[in-house]
Amino acid sequence: MRLCAAACIAFIWSGGACAGYVPRSALDEAVRIAAVTAKSAPDESTLAARLDAARLSAVSDPLPAEAELQQTLLRLREAIAPQAATRMQVEALTDYSPQTYTDALDDERARGGLTVPAFEIAATARGTLRRWDKAAHRAALVSALRRGDLEALRAIDDAAAWREQIAVASDAELLLLRSADSADPGVRSALALRLGDTSLARDVLRAPATPAGLTLLAALPEAFESTVALTLLNDPDLDSGYRSAARLAMSRLVWSAETQQALLAGLGDADGASSAQALARDPRNLPALRRIIADAPDDLSLRRALLALHWMEDAGASATLAAFSHDPAQPASLRAEVSQWLR
């Protein structure tokens, strides 16, 4: 499908026109007719029959056929338990190559005619299948949980369905799901949050960073008691891809001297700027930052403390920066930078 689209786009750019090109006005009418037809279908069998017919007629008359394919697929999404034959028909459409092209709804359209498939048949078929699959997997999960069947649970390889089930599972079901020991980081994260399982959370955050792990990390301050969350966020074995986010997440913990100390201790390291931003989010950290600037334990810590004041929306922080910029004992380059901020 993409190859065909690309070829057509290239052809249009070279000044030609695709064989399957249709203007928008023709599309509007085709979709209207197809939508009415799809809605009027009394049952799944009728819709399935129309899929077949439309697919065949797409060869000779692609515009109305593709409109009907699309509308019929959408209507079929409502089927609860589709027949095997219907499913096969939809599966066959997931690699459908579009025949009809039109202008993109593109504000740059005047620039030379970016032409795209008029109907996303394959994508719509994917969506229909996914809706069916997920419903089936959710049902299977519920059934397996009711039976306490660990092996059946493990056989259901659908992380999204798992996550949805985890969101509504009882405590006993959660423990069963935990025992199934899914390797999916999204599932593990969801379980860690629902169960308050620090061990599981730690494992996820020590493994190579994933979007799901980042979601878990962002949820820790609310999901765990502050001291527990601090331990997880300040774990020295955290994957490097999580470290900046972990420092920033610390700013959402209930303020404490321990959290402040953890952030101050990290000011001079590779993620010190993230510590600085976390510290900047609470003016109660201002006195400690002032001490860092006065003591200047090392150049990096000094710079990050200055950044923290720069980011802190607080008059006291600004006053400290102003004093720094006028202090001839401070490094000239830093004073110049700070003066720039104050302007």
């Binding site: 960073a209 994933t210 600085a276």
Partner: peptide, 29 residues
């Protein structure tokens, strides 16, 4: 058809899209 990306509060690049404040802080640093 795929997970909806949410802004990530991280200064350093991640598999995702950074929150504006963190991105700006990264540039400041």
């Amino acid at each position: 058809g795929y997970p909806v990306p949410l802004p990530v509060d991280s200064q350093t690049p991640v598999d995702g899209f950074r929150r504006y404040a963190a991105l700006q802080a990264r540039l400041d640093e």
